[in-house]
Amino acid sequence: MMLKGRSLLEPSDFSVEEIESLFGLAGRIMDAPSDYSEVCRGRLLATLFYEPSTRTRFSFEAAMLRLGGQVIGFSEPGSSSVAKGESIADTIKTVACYADIAVIRHPKEGAPRVAAMSTDMPVINAGDGGHQHPTQTLTDLLTVKRARGGFENLTVGVCGDLKFGRTVHSLIKALARYSGVSFVLISPQELMVPEYVRKEVLKKTASPFRETENLLDVISELDVLYMTRVQRERFFNEEDYIRLKDSYILDAEKMRGARRDMMVLHPLPRVNEIAAEVDSDPRAFYFKQAQNGMYIRMALIMALLGIKE
């Protein structure tokens, strides 16, 4: 695995084989975490969060601390020089003087790429606006891989805000590379996948896909149902948000129409798109995803820093 020194800005930055090797490493860490508790001693991870985050920031910080490394950073730009108007390029160049690897979340699409272009230090995209969220995708894929053994020939439904849902864009980009994967895109007209996902990913990879507005019509066909939140902060217009936010709510009634082995995934946090009654359903995997997230991020940090097992 030659990931040392590289950045992860979107899933296709890594080959399928490289992602597979990360899954392998994450699995070994899960099996024997104490074997890895000192491997990053003396290494520093910088977390630059220009946007709020609980899960992603905590899981990166927990990942680095569990590897024996340390963490610096900010969780809101108001407490950094960003508030004075410092550019992303200047911030990352400064951070690179102190840290070995950086994680960046930013409301602007492509901001992590600007950071990566400005430094030799590995940069990890922890979510850029409504664009991409590749480490969430690694988490999603690891969860499916461990439950189903692989991705070939899966029918994957993605439901909710497919226009601004960065986790959806990254997931489709990653899964479209596996043979036989087909997609059912379930969303209101207003929140369908962006043009580049349709043209550059689905059509280019010749992945079968269809689009529908009705979750109930297709739920029985799915191996995986990936639910997403209709995010208030992605709308320019509050009225649009209120009109669409409850469009797709998964509850026990809808789950009755699903296959017995369908996996329900969600990047979290949820608002009301999955009813709490679904949590106890053995097909609900979303809290397992959160747990897997830390292990895959441990593997990613090790790989980008070039730390041998």
């Binding site: 550019s87 992303i88 390029a89 930013h106 409301p107 602007k108 699409e109 492509g110 790429r113 600007v114």
Partner: peptide
């Protein structure tokens, strides 16, 4: 929403 539209020098 693109970084190029708001960040100077990009």
């Amino acid at each position: 929403r693109c970084v190029a539209s708001s960040e100077s020098g990009v």
